[in-house]
Simulated scan of single mutants.
Amino acid sequence: MRAQQTAFSGFANPVDPTPAELRAWAHQPDVVPLHTMPPDWDLLVSGDHLIGTLLELALDRGCPARRFALHCLYIYAADGIRTNFRAHPKRRLRKMVESVEQDGDELLRIWAHNVRMLIARPELFDYHDWCEGGLVRHPRRLS
Rank of each mutant, 00 (worst) to 15 (best):
M1Q: 15
M1C: 15
R2P: 14
R2I: 07
A3L: 15
Q4C: 14
Q4D: 15
Q4Y: 08
T6C: 11
T6E: 14
T6F: 04
F8R: 00
F8H: 02
F8C: 00
F8T: 00
S9A: 15
F11M: 00
N13K: 13
V15K: 10
D16S: 15
A20C: 09
E21G: 00
R23D: 11
R23Q: 10
R23A: 08
A24R: 07
A24H: 02
A26V: 00
H27W: 12
P29E: 03
P29S: 05
D30C: 00
D30N: 06
D30A: 08
D30L: 04
V31I: 08
L34G: 09
H35S: 11
M37T: 00
P38T: 00
P39V: 02
P39F: 01
P39M: 02
D40P: 02
D40T: 01
D40Q: 12
L43N: 09
L44Q: 12
L44C: 10
L44D: 07
V45G: 04
V45H: 02
D48I: 02
D48N: 10
D48E: 14
H49S: 15
L50E: 08
I51R: 05
T53P: 06
T53G: 03
L54Q: 07
L55K: 11
E56M: 12
L57A: 03
L57I: 05
A58T: 01
L59Q: 07
L59K: 05
D60Q: 14
G62W: 04
C63Q: 09
C63N: 12
A65L: 01
R66S: 10
R67F: 08
F68W: 07
L70F: 01
C72T: 01
L73F: 00
L73D: 05
Y74P: 04
Y74W: 10
I75Q: 07
Y76V: 05
Y76K: 10
D79H: 12
R82K: 13
T83C: 11
R86L: 13
A87G: 00
A87Q: 10
H88R: 09
H88G: 04
R91Y: 09
L93H: 02
L93T: 02
K95P: 01
E98N: 08
V100G: 04
E101M: 09
E101R: 12
E101S: 10
D103A: 14
D105V: 00
D105N: 13
E106R: 12
L107W: 10
L107N: 13
L108Q: 07
I110V: 13
A112E: 08
A112I: 01
H113F: 09
H113T: 05
H113L: 07
V115D: 11
R116F: 00
L118A: 10
L118F: 01
I119T: 02
A120Q: 14
P122Y: 03
P122Q: 06
P122K: 00
L124E: 13
L124M: 15
L124F: 12
F125D: 13
F125A: 11
D126I: 09
D126R: 13
Y127E: 15
H128R: 15
D129R: 05
G133D: 09
G133Y: 09
G133K: 10
G134P: 12
L135G: 10
L135T: 03
H138P: 09
R140Q: 12
R141L: 11
R141W: 07
S143R: 14
